[in-house]
Nucleic acid binder design. Sequence first.
DNA 1: ACCAATAACTTTGAATTTCAAAGTACTCTA
DNA 2: TAGAGTACTTTGAAATTCAAAGTTATTGGT
Lengths: 104, 104
Amino acid sequence: MKHIITKLNPAFDHRVRLGIMSVLMLEEWVDFSSLKETLNLTDGRLASHIKALEKETYLEVRKRFIARKPNTSYRATDEGRKAFQAHLDALEALLRAGNSGQPE
Amino acid sequence: MKHIITKLNPAFDHRVRLGIMSVLMLEEWVDFSSLKETLNLTDGRLASHIKALEKETYLEVRKRFIARKPNTSYRATDEGRKAFQAHLDALEALLRAGNSGQPE
DNA sequence: ACCAATAACTTTGAATTTCAAAGTACTCTA
DNA sequence: TAGAGTACTTTGAAATTCAAAGTTATTGGT
């Protein structure tokens, strides 16, 4: 008998992390600099938000070299996808039903 | 040529404020204790998030007495509704198009 | 006039989060 | 082994968030 907002995942409270996840929901293996440009972030800021998502095991990392340059890519884990989808579902529910306790 | 996440409103980053706004989008004049119960928050926590939204003039306040007890209600201002709707539109766009710069 | 009760805050202080700026590690190429 | 480029990490300061406790305003009872 909890309210819908309790189903909103605090890990996705922040718009930068929403941005990262939404990019990674649509495309597998997006690299650091693409994310950085797409979301218009500094290195440090992006890295710290990625780290937070990694800590939740919502994304995984692949490091390699392309054209003799280091290239790090990320993709959402299954867990991350599920968690994000659940968050979006909760958001939607929040806006449809909007209000008092929903049956568990 | 900015990314969609720049259209996400930092004022709505937090799930509690999303909850408050979503309730107030569907119903005018919701009172303090209803919000508190609906969202399962402490007095202080609710008050502080309301304060943040008031500061942005996203909601307005009405104080009166009902059954000889103080009763404070809130509703979203037009500005608040517009801002919240814009936020939701941005969220939606984020999930549909998801990625690189959208035309201004 | 005074006091208790209730609703709605406000304050305090500590923990956590966020950020920019600067520094560092790693690997490649020459 | 020096230099270049990518991807971080560290640092330190500012802002945010929270629970807990304290405060204000008004009513109703005495």
